[in-house]
Each structure stands twice: as structure tokens, then as C-alpha cells.
Simulated scan of single mutants.
Amino acid sequence: MITEIPPRGDFVHPAVFYASDEEYLDLLVPFVKDGVALGHPVAAAVPGDRLRLLRDALGDVTDEVLLLDMEVEGRNPGRIIPAVLRRFADRHSGKHVRIIGEPIWAGRSEVEYPACAQHEALINLAFAGRDVTIACPYDVTALDEHVLTDALATHPLVWETGRHYDSDHYAPDAVVSRYNLSLDTAATAATLEVATTADLRGARRFATDQGQHLGLSADRAADLALITTELVVNSLRHGGGACVVSVWQDGAHLVCTVRDAGYLADPLAGRRPAPPTQEGGRGLLMINQLADLVRVHTTPLGTTTHAFLRIDA
């Protein structure tokens, strides 16, 4: 038994440090089985190899746990809170919910990692006061030291084999700020200035043409058109009334970048599910759902949003 049952309304968010498959299972299988025994809804969203390991170890309770491949569901860290964590927790309001979420693994790229770190920090804001435990495993043998240091800043608790303790370095706001990083747009990027809604159709056509030129499939080119539309509309409404759209290739990804003069003050924008009765306000949510990665850099001088789509997907 790793942790006591949290009191009602007490959000629990530990970093789970493990150094082997055995430690992984010793830390997480009791967490899952205790939850099932207590009638807590339980989900696990972890990378594919960890998913197979966990499934095999859960035995007769496997069918009572929602198991998700984080490499699929959470490829874009910006979709994890609304489409994985909140979706499961909101479905079981009124009960304490247990979730294992492993969004950071050794295969994550340097471009993805800042979005991952911000995601881990923002979980605390998104679930403050909720009756939920979200345990986040970290492989201490495979991840860089700075990743583990960041984990201590984004999680108020740490679980290790045989003990759990408070983190002395908990500072999630500092992590959100530290990874609010700019990305250079390629010098070869095609660009288009958009000044009014009358230019919206041209912006969609521009993005689609560039996407097809760079090798996007027809379906993903259609997704790119939707992403571009929502980013441009958001900029025209909230970003100073004009924007610049750029499309370029970064390795295996097409990147659609929209730059405007606005400031994105809400760090959970695009990560907070919209109530069914709400009109509008779903554009950034949809962008996070469609893109393989979203990186945002925002300051009082302007905001730049980069949406990545794998060209070979």
C-alpha cells in the first residue's frame, strides 16, 4: 500500500520515480488494485511498452481499468488534460478517481519536452480541489537529470519504492514560465499576412497548398486547413486584429506558425473542456486535438503558436 485514501476534494499529484520494471510494478500495481477494491474508477495512460507490462501484471482486474497508449493519446501534450485526464475524471464525478499518466518518456524529442513540462505543471491548476489522484511515473535510469529536476518542481509529492515524501522544490508556475520558449521559424518558410476576416479563405488555401507541397496526405491537409482557420480567427479576435501565417518543414513535421500582437494570459487556454452549453471557445481545444504537437510562446509583446503535423502520418 503506497498512499492513504485522500480526503474528499483533495487533489493528489505525485511523481513516481522508478528504476526498473520491478519497481514500476511494485509502485503502481497496488495503486491500481487498491483503487479497484475501493470502487474508485481507475485509468492508466502510459507509453506502449509500459502499457503491455502493466496489463500483464494486473491480472484479473485488467478489465476494470481503462488502459490507454500515451504515445497515441498524448502525442501532443496539450491534449492530455482535456482529452485524457478530464474526460475520464469528469465521467466519474462524485467518486475519487485514480489515474496513472506517463507523458514523458525517453523517446520524447527536445522540441516536445517544453510542452510536456508545462503540461505536468498545469495539471495542478486544472485539477485544484478535484477528488482525483494523478500519479506520473518517471524512469530515473532513462531520463535526463533536468527532467527529474523539473518533475520535483511540477509535483508536490514524490513516490519511490518504500517511501513517499513532499517535494521541497515544488514550483509549477516557474516551470510554466521557464518553458515559455520561442521557436525559430525557418528562413525558407512560406508566409502570408492576414489582416481581416476577408482574408480567411486565402489563408486556408495558402496553408493547404503548402501542406500538399510538403507531402501531407489529403486528410491531414484538411486538418491543417482547420488548424489554420482557428488560429487566424483567434488572432483576428484577440491578437491585435492581424497576424502572419508561416508554413515550413522541420524534419518529419510540417509546422504551421501564426504570429500576432496579442497576449495569451490564460495558461489553460485550449486545455479546459468547454461545457456542452457554451457557444464557441473550442478553437484551441480543436487545434490541440488535431495537431501532433502545439508549442506556444506568449509575452505582452505578442504570441506565436506553432502547430506540428507529421508529414508521413
Rank of each mutant, 00 (worst) to 15 (best):
M1R: 11
I2V: 07
T3Y: 13
E4H: 07
I5W: 01
I5L: 14
P7R: 12
G9S: 08
V12I: 15
P14S: 09
V16H: 02
F17V: 06
F17H: 14
S20R: 00
E23N: 06
Y24H: 09
D26Y: 00
L28C: 06
F31S: 03
V32C: 12
K33P: 00
V36P: 04
L38V: 00
A44N: 00
V46W: 00
R50N: 13
L51F: 06
D56G: 04
A57S: 15
E64A: 14
M70N: 12
E71C: 01
G74P: 08
R75E: 15
R75M: 10
P77S: 04
P77T: 06
R79N: 05
I81A: 10
R86A: 15
A89G: 01
G101S: 15
E102L: 07
P103D: 00
W105K: 01
A106M: 01
S109W: 04
Y113Q: 07
P114G: 08
A121H: 03
L122W: 09
L122Q: 09
A126H: 03
T133A: 06
Y138D: 02
V140R: 15
L143D: 06
D144M: 12
E145K: 14
H146C: 05
V147N: 10
V147K: 03
L152P: 01
T154M: 05
V158Q: 08
W159I: 13
W159A: 10
E160I: 11
G162R: 09
R163Y: 10
H164S: 13
D166F: 08
H169G: 02
A171E: 15
P172V: 04
D173R: 09
S177D: 14
S182M: 11
A187Q: 08
T188Y: 10
A189D: 08
E193M: 03
E193P: 00
V194S: 05
T196P: 05
A207L: 11
T208I: 12
D209A: 13
G211I: 07
G215V: 11
L216S: 05
R220M: 00
D223F: 04
L224V: 08
I227Y: 03
I227W: 01
T229S: 12
N234M: 02
N234L: 03
R237D: 13
H238I: 05
G240R: 01
G241F: 01
V245W: 04
C256N: 11
T257K: 02
V258A: 02
D260L: 02
A261D: 13
G262S: 08
A265R: 11
D266E: 14
G270S: 07
G270E: 05
R271C: 13
R272I: 02
A274Y: 04
A274F: 04
T277L: 09
G281Y: 06
R282E: 13
G283D: 10
Q289R: 15
D292K: 07
L293K: 01
R295I: 10
T298G: 10
T299V: 15
P300Q: 07
G302Y: 05
T305L: 12
H306D: 06
F308G: 00
L309A: 06
I311E: 08
